[in-house]
Nucleic acid binder design. Structure first.
Length: 284
DNA sequence: ATGCCGTGGAAACCACGA
């Protein structure tokens, strides 16, 4: 099973590139970020034509996340993170697919530092960590994929010293990422490529892609259920070289369909919720 | 390394991204 994440930077402006990549890469699941489109302007028909079902949470002008799936067996769990009803940004959508929970996230950029946007980023990070902890506790296989807007270590930045006071690399943000991973998550790309320089983003200017002046900010965090199921983790970096392309490249993982996990998934899927049990007891 | 490019939306410029 192939699961991808791609910050498209405008789903309508990027549609030809997105469709070209979907056809070439053919992921089973694709998490998209930065749709930059209101709910009703998501290009659902074109994406269906390309063979994908979709759930999405749009927003006028900015943000916006979607999960695409070849199979119709994709059930939305939630949109938005719990913990702040005032937060109206479309930055999180979550679904269950074949017994796997897939969280698609677009963590706030946080610049400039210091400032309100940076504080918002840290708060959003805390809410993500709280939710991630609950997901781990549920003991269902979970994939948290998306644009985290964090370079976790110096290996993930072409020139670390230039980024120390940037919201993507500030020590508070790196610490937040470390705390999150410390709950028991696996950084899939790093697990399979421990010492490699890997980038997922290259700035549009200063010829950044040609100079390979990149950042690794798009990540896959996996629950322990995937420890023996993760087969590959790669960046489709050539896509960053296409005409009219996003400043991010797609990132993807390949996982084995493991029998144990399937049994587990079936068990979880058939488990009755406490509410259902309660109402059944009442009915007796 | 300062938004130099790119996107979207509203109004021929501005907000925002990383």
């Amino acid at each position: 099973m192939k699961i991808a994440t791609y910050n498209v930077n405008g789903v309508n402006g990027r549609l030809p590139v997105l469709l070209r990549w979907l056809k070439e890469s053919s992921p089973d699941i694709a998490c998209l970020q930065e749709l930059k489109a209101p709910q009703e302007k998501f290009p659902e028909a074109a994406i269906r034509e390309a063979g994908y079902h979709a759930i999405w949470h749009g927003q006028k002008s900015w943000n916006g996340v979607a999960i695409l799936s070849k199979s119709p067996d994709l059930k939305e769990n939630r949109r938005g993170l719990p913990g702040d009803p005032e937060d109206l940004h479309s930055r999180y959508i979550e679904a269950t697919f074949k017994g796997i929970v897939v969280g698609c996230l677009y963590l706030p950029n946080g610049n400039p530092y210091p400032g309100a946007k940076f504080e918002y980023k840290l708060k959003w990070f805390k809410r993500l960590s709280a939710h991630a902890k609950k997901l781990l506790k549920s003991d269902v296989p979970v994939v948290l994929a998306g644009d985290y807007n964090v370079m976790p270590t110096e290996l993930d930045v072409y020139k670390p010293e230039r980024w120390v006071n940037d919201a993507l690399f500030r020590k508070e943000v790196r610490a937040a990422f470390k705390t999150l991973v410390g709950q028991g998550w696996t950084d899939a790309l790093r697990k399979l490529h421990p010492d490699e320089t890997i980038y997922t983003f290259w700035d549009y200017f200063r010829n950044a892609y040609a100079r390979d002046a990149g950042l690794r900010i798009d990540h896959f965090l996996l629950s322990k259920h995937f420890d023996k199921r993760l087969v590959r983790a790669e960046v489709d970096r050539h896509v960053r070289g296409w005409e009219k392309t996003s400043d991010h490249a797609p990132v993807w993982i390949e996982i084995k369909e493991g029998k144990a996990a399937s049994r587990k998934a079936r068990m979880v899927a058939s488990r009755k919720s406490p509410e259902v049990r309660k109402s059944e007891r009442r009915a007796q």
